[in-house]
Simulated scan of single mutants.
Amino acid sequence: MHSQKMTFDHYHIRLLELSDLDAYYKMVSTNRERLEDFFTGTTSRTKTYADTKMFLAEMLERTERREYFPYLILDTKTNDIVGFLDLKNVDWNIPKTEMGLYIDEAYAGKGISLRAFKLFCKHCFDTYNFRKLFLRTHSENHPARAIAEKAGFKNEGTIRCDYKTTKGELVDLIYYGKLNDD
Rank of each mutant, 00 (worst) to 15 (best):
154 K>Y: 08
92 W>E: 13
122 K>I: 11
129 N>K: 07
141 N>V: 06
59 M>N: 08
164 K>Y: 09
136 R>I: 05
64 E>T: 09
60 L>A: 03
108 A>I: 10
107 Y>G: 05
79 N>T: 14
65 R>Q: 15
135 L>C: 12
108 A>H: 03
90 V>F: 12
140 E>S: 05
74 L>T: 12
152 G>V: 09
63 T>E: 12
156 E>A: 12
143 P>R: 00
92 W>N: 09
75 D>V: 13
153 F>N: 06
130 F>Q: 01
60 L>E: 07
123 H>W: 15
72 L>R: 00
115 R>F: 04
167 K>H: 09
89 N>D: 13
131 R>D: 08
148 A>I: 09
136 R>S: 06
111 G>T: 13
104 D>P: 14
73 I>E: 02
127 T>R: 07
101 L>F: 08
62 R>Q: 15
149 E>V: 10
138 H>G: 00
119 L>I: 11
116 A>E: 09
85 L>D: 04
144 A>G: 12
116 A>I: 09
144 A>L: 07
136 R>P: 00
124 C>N: 08
159 I>Q: 11
67 E>C: 06
160 R>S: 13
137 T>W: 00
134 F>A: 00
154 K>T: 13
137 T>F: 03
141 N>T: 07
92 W>C: 08
107 Y>V: 07
77 K>R: 14
145 R>K: 14
98 E>H: 10
77 K>Q: 15
